[in-house]
Design a protein around this nucleic acid. Structure first.
Lengths: 331, 331
DNA sequence: TTGTAAGCGTTATCAA
DNA sequence: TTGATAACGCTTACAA
């Protein structure tokens, strides 16, 4: 893109103001003039410089998103929902992955300087940057973390679902449990799941930390755990970890659910296809992303000025991995 | 971000030129002056406007990437490699997902107006836009498609690996084959795989199209195929489809590899964990992304001006799904 | 209905 | 060593 509005104006024999008005449909333009302008635009293959437009308009028409990584479907699905709606609203999406990254502070600040609003997962952005951003009034939506003053929060329900899940496991008659999940960051979604489960199971459950929310780490952690002790049911922080646990159980010759019940969280696609199929809590991942994009749009355009804190409902999906159910259908 | 370079200059009692020089380290600044400036910058918490900088510098310091979707690890992995290196080089990453999207033309053009260079997967961008972009000299790297004049191409080796894979299957003694994959776009990576396999297997193999490269679609297509006929070996376009085929086989009571051999492509993480573990071709997904980012950087900075066409080597990974191997280790 | 000109926030050239 | 000032490419009052 090299040709500027001046060249178009010159070629059409009008002023740049007229070219701008014609292209944006702002203000009146004689149809004769309009034609001349459009012809020149066509011939020169003119596209307004995004930089020029943004500078003049005082907005980027772009959104950012900060996530730890993209391993596994969760962040990916949210991202896709976010990008889709953002595109619909005429906004580009800039991404920032923080996992294993140094100088995250600077990266987030740089990103913030390129967008009109930001979706931030959990605690992936340092607290002081977040505070700064809130102070300068940058539109912010947090997904999967506890509410924060001055920014939107968007999450799926965790505590009640966790209780429900725990209750279901009790109905199966289990008495010894273990919880397998990534390191618990207070206030994160995953922390709430743990708290919810524990509030029902009490001392009958113990938490074991995996590294990340990945199949690999879930596998490793489950292997270590199961070699040391034999809980009857393994509650996992998410489906990936649960999938890893399934592999570990197989490796150790444990039948699921007969020797060991396993549950996940998220209901990613692989959960349905796992053997045995995974009992899990379904959360609307795409919708989280889509809603975040809309929320940001409201904040950016000024359609809304007070923060919203929304919790989407989840659903307990009972499949085969948590125990035998009488009414169970064939696979 | 609201404070401008003028306010800093005023507060420091210098001109904006001096502020700029101080911050960028271009041109001489008396250390006394530097201190004053830095103090003012600190106090006002000044960050240069990205828009102003970009407009003046004539560059975005950002890269774009165009992919169909993010379902499955392939695109995700490439994206992560790309973003990591881009960040390292001081560039942000803008994404564009085209699957199920209307007006792709406009979206790609808009994206192009926001970046200094673009990574484009296969044929996700319409030919005419591509031509336009090449003409205006936009730095472009294509991943997973046949070379194109005026742009870089970066791919993994396909044909020879496909032959190798086919040869291995012949050694197992199979005589009837089927190929399962997404619709073949001439010139795409996946097309080359098909061509390579067919060049060895000839009339003994037939192609069946799935919808997308997903487990779901692979499962559906395999189910349909296997109900109609019983090949001895199923060559899949990628691991996701192969994973779906594995599920379909199980559903039909077919033992893999005894009743049916199955192979994939990519060596995604799940391939190793599948039961049976998937024989596949490993391609360096992250590296594709990382190299694309570096290639783009060369093109953008002008370190290189002639297009490069690079093919990375792949590796045949023989696991259990393609047949019994004498020297096989326990799982 | 159209044009002039003042921003928008930088960088960088050229004098001083 | 510093400061005016001209780009950079657009939008949008305000005048005409």
């Amino acid at each position: 893109m090299d040709v500027t509005i001046y060249e178009v104006a010159q070629r059409a024999g009008v002023s740049i103001a007229t070219v701008s008005r014609t292209l944006r449909g702002t203000g009146p333009v004689a149809s004769k003039t309009r034609e001349k302008v459009l012809k020149a635009v066509e011939e020169l293959n003119f596209t307004p410089s995004r930089l020029g437009v943004s500078l003049a308009e005082g907005r980027h028409a772009a959104n950012g998103i900060v996530f730890p990584s993209l391993s596994g479907p969760y962040y990916t699905e949210v991202l896709l929902g976010y990008e889709e709606v953002a595109a619909e609203l005429g906004r580009s999406v800039l991404i920032l992955s923080t996992a294993g990254r140094t100088r995250v502070r600077d990266l987030v600040k740089d990103l913030a300087g390129r967008v009109d609003g930001l979706l931030i997962f959990g605690h992936t952005a340092p607290d002081d940057v977040v505070t700064e951003l809130v102070q300068v009034g940058m539109p912010l939506v947090f997904v999967s973390r506890e509410p924060l003053a001055g920014a939107d929060t968007l999450r799926s329900e965790n505590t009640a679902s966790a209780r429900l899940l725990a209750g279901h496991l009790l109905e199966h008659g289990y008495e010894h449990f273990a919880y397998l999940g990534a390191p618990l960051v207070s206030g994160d979604d995953v922390d709430e799941r743990w708290q919810g489960v524990r509030s029902v199971l009490g001392g009958a459950i113990e938490a074991v930390a995996t590294g990340q929310y990945t199949v690999e780490d879930g596998y490793d952690a489950a292997l270590r755990l199961l070699r040391r002790q034999r809980p009857q049911a393994l509650v996992c922080s998410d489906d990936e970890v649960a999938l890893g646990a399934l592999l570990a159980a197989e490796e150790l010759g444990l039948a699921v659910p007969d020797d060991l019940a396993v549950t996940g969280w998220d209901d990613i696609m692989a959960a349905r296809h796992a053997r045995p199929a995974l009992t899990t809590i379904r959360q609307p991942m795409r919708e989280l992303g889509a809603r975040a994009a809309r929320a940001l749009d409201e904040l950016i355009t000024g359609a809304r000025s007070t923060p919203n804190h929304l919790t989407l409902t989840t659903e307990l999906v009972i499949r085969a991995s948590c125990g035998i159910h009488p009414q169970e259908e064939p696979p």
